[in-house]
Simulated scan of single mutants.
Amino acid sequence: MSKDTARLDINGSIRYFLSTAGQAPQSFGIDKYGELPPSHDFAILSNEGGVKSSQPIRTDHFALILCIRGHCSKTVGPHTFQVIPQSIHIVSPRDLHSFENASDDLLLYMILFRDAFIANTFIKEHILDALLELPSEHPPVYHLDDNEFKVIRGLFKKIAQEYQRAHLFYLQVVRLLVVELLFEVNRSHERALQQTVGRTGRKFQLVAAFKKLVEEHFHTVRTVQQYADMLHVSANHLGEQVKEETGENALTIIHKRIFLEAQYLLRTSSCSIKEIAEQLSFDTSSHFSRFFKHFAGLSPSAYKADNK
Rank of each mutant, 00 (worst) to 15 (best):
D145Y: 09
H97C: 02
N147C: 09
S281H: 04
A166T: 00
R69G: 11
A208W: 06
S188L: 07
V185H: 07
F17S: 04
S286E: 07
R7A: 08
F28E: 10
A24G: 02
F62S: 01
Q225Y: 01
L155P: 02
Q194H: 04
R267D: 06
H167I: 08
K203W: 07
F117G: 05
E216G: 12
C72S: 15
C271E: 15
F282S: 04
G297V: 13
S73F: 13
I159K: 02
A21Q: 11
P139L: 09
E240D: 06
V214C: 10
A130T: 14
L128V: 01
D129N: 11
Q225M: 02
L66G: 07
K211Q: 11
H189R: 14
C271D: 15
E162K: 12
Y33V: 02
F156D: 06
S289C: 02
H126W: 12
I88C: 14
Q195S: 08
H126E: 13
F156K: 03
L176N: 11
L36N: 07
L96H: 04
A21P: 00
I68G: 02
Y303I: 06
R175M: 07
F81Q: 05
Q279W: 09
A235Q: 05
K150R: 10
H138Q: 10
H40Q: 12
S98N: 08
V233R: 02
M110Y: 02
R165I: 11
L298S: 14
S54G: 03
Q161G: 08
D283T: 13
S87Y: 05
Y109R: 09
D105Q: 07
T20S: 10
I44V: 15
V178M: 01
V197D: 09
I273M: 04
Q194Y: 10
K212G: 13
D129P: 06
A305S: 14
E245Y: 14
L265G: 08
R58W: 01
D95G: 01
V178F: 02
V224A: 00
S286R: 10
E125I: 00
R114E: 08
Q161E: 13
F117K: 06
L231A: 03
I84G: 08
A305G: 02
T223I: 05
L112K: 01
N147H: 12
P139M: 09
K150D: 12
E100D: 10
D115T: 03
N236G: 06
A166V: 01
T196S: 08
C271Y: 14
Q82Y: 15
D95I: 03
F156H: 04
L266S: 05
D229Q: 04
L266I: 07
K157R: 09
A302E: 12
R7M: 05
E184H: 13
L177G: 03
I258P: 03
V179A: 01
